[in-house]
């Protein structure tokens, strides 16, 4: 008789209820409620001076993309100019200070470009979406 109830095409109401609750649990994102998570955190804060008028144009960006990693910081700065601001200095690899500079995009203010230098060397860039 037990086998008969398992083979039954209709889903047991209890199972259906469980499925509904599981589905509800999946739909709700508890991560933002839990204390160890800060999903809505703003992007990393600027340290020191902020030059509010600085934005990066399409032309500047296009030029920057042609500069290979390991080129000089000077070459990059000739293209992009002074930064909007700098992020906290840190060491990513031992003994080398990484300098991170921020440039909001003129044509997309919600996106900022982060450039990383190590000493006089240009290490790379990434886009940060807010």
């Amino acid at each position: 008789m037990q086998r008969h109830s398992i083979d039954s095409p209709s889903i047991h109401p209890l199972l259906l209820g469980g499925l509904f609750l599981a589905f509800l649990g999946l739909m709700l994102d508890f991560r933002s409620v839990l204390p160890f998570n800060t999903s809505a955190a703003p992007p990393e804060r600027c340290q020191g001076d902020v030059n509010h008028e600085v934005v990066l144009s399409r032309e500047q960006l296009a030029q920057l993309l042609t500069v290979p990693e390991r080129d000089t910081k000077q070459r990059v700065q000739e293209i992009v100019g002074a930064p909007f601001c700098s992020l906290q200095s840190l060491q990513v690899r031992a003994g080398i200070a990484a300098e991170r500079q921020v440039y909001p995009l003129a044509f997309d203010p919600s996106t900022r470009l982060v450039i990383l230098y190590e000493g006089d060397e240009y290490a790379g860039y990434r886009f940060s979406f807010q």
């Binding site: 955190a41 990513v92 982060v114 990383l116 290490a123 790379g124």
Partner: peptide
């Protein structure tokens, strides 16, 4: 995106939370 030019490899991670993660 705040740390260009670098990535970090983590091996042995259990119950990983894949996708976007906030600092801390």
């Amino acid at each position: 995106p705040e740390v260009p030019a670098y990535i970090f490899r983590l091996c042995g991670l259990e119950r990983p939370r894949l996708g976007a993660v906030a600092q801390g």
